[in-house]
């Protein structure tokens, strides 16, 4: 197990280098010229431009620029945006918000998704099952921004159950409930369907029949024997999804005005703040890789037939 973890951590290095270089390349090569963008419509001051290009190594070949960037990263320096704010500070501000949002979405996903899936799986073909199937299908087919505005309008403005927009800069937990629902809804639908299929499949499994034959109460058969086994594929999905939730909140954060990583990236892209974009994406890549490793390890805990060596 220990060796497996070490090997996986080592494997992350080339993946990390590859993805960050790709981002770096795309942002700096394909994006517009950041310095002239700072001046907008006004003519640029040539002295200032030369000075900026020196300071940000913009005259060096891309690979050299990337090298500077990478060595900076290793010492915890994510670079500085053109507006002079250290990118690390921006990340430190935005990440906790996005993490909080992702956790809320995640919790809703697990509780409602697994619950609905369990109900549907146990009553396959019955009314409750049809309700779950139709509802999840609707959720899956509606684009996120439509769902976002619908939820914001009805739950936030009309019925005023929760705040419709987040407090700028530092949203409270309550502020994040509606965006959490919207962010988690798509995965929730997948979790519900995955759980349903898995439950329905395992319900006829021999070991469930054995559990009944042992004279265990039905509740114990379902929770201890049926659910535990059925959740193995669901947990895999959930783990991979937690990373995606953090990265995938751009639209949701935009609608609800949440100052998280999604909005940070969106604003940085529009302002050509290359260091911010690359830094935020690099951090997300790390989150994603670590989440994947945790899922794989969790998988081995849930299913003892899997052994990592």
């Amino acid at each position: 197990m220990g060796r497996y973890v070490v090997r996986r951590l080592l494997q992350m290095i080339p993946v990390f280098l590859g993805t960050t270089f790709l981002i770096y390349f795309m942002v700096y090569q394909l994006g517009g010229d950041p310095i002239s963008a700072m001046f907008g419509d006004k003519a640029a001051d040539p002295v200032f431009v030369r000075q900026m290009r020196e300071e940000y190594h913009l005259n060096d070949p891309l690979i050299v620029q990337y090298w500077y960037y990478l060595t900076g990263l290793l010492t915890g320096d994510f670079g500085t945006s053109f507006s002079g704010i250290p990118v690390a500070d921006e990340l430190k501000r935005a990440f906790p918000i996005s993490i909080r949002l992702a956790l809320i979405a995640f919790a809703i996903e697990i509780v409602v998704g697994v619950g609905a899936g369990l109900l549907a799986g146990l009553r396959r073909g019955k009314f409750a099952d049809s309700v779950v199937l139709v509802t999840t299908l609707i959720v899956i087919s509606i684009p996120v921004f439509v769902l976002g505005y619908v939820v914001q309008y009805w739950l936030g403005l009309k019925w005023q159950l929760f705040p419709a927009t987040a407090t700028p800069g530092d949203p409270t937990w309550e502020d994040l409930i509606l965006p959490g629902i919207v962010l988690g809804s798509l995965s929730l639908a997948f979790v519900a369907r995955l759980t349903r299929t898995s439950i329905a499949e395992n319900m006829r499994a021999d070991f469930v029949r054995t559990a009944t034959a042992k004279g265990l109460p039905r509740r114990r058969v379902v929770t201890v024997h049926l659910l535990r086994n059925s959740l193995i594929p669901v947990v895999t999905f959930l783990g991979a999804d937690l990373g995606a939730l953090m990265a995938g909140a751009i639209v949701t954060e935009g609608i609800f005005n949440v100052d998280g990583v999604g909005r940070l990236i969106y604003l940085a892209v529009t302002k050509h703040e290359n260091a911010t974009v690359v830094g935020a994406v690099a951090a997300l890549v790390i989150v994603y890789l670590v989440m994947n490793l945790i899922v794989d390890l969790l998988y081995a805990v849930l299913d003892p037939r899997i052994r990592y060596a």
């Binding site: 021999d206 070991f207 009944t212 042992k214 004279g215 086994n229 003892p304 037939r305």
Partner: peptide, 24 residues
């Protein structure tokens, strides 16, 4: 249910699938 397992017990054909794979 109180008879099952306690008074009448059953042994299945394929123990590999009849035992729950995720518990000792």
């Amino acid at each position: 249910r109180k008879i099952r397992g306690k008074k009448i017990a059953m042994i299945f054909q394929d123990a590999l699938s009849a035992l729950n794979p995720v518990y000792s």
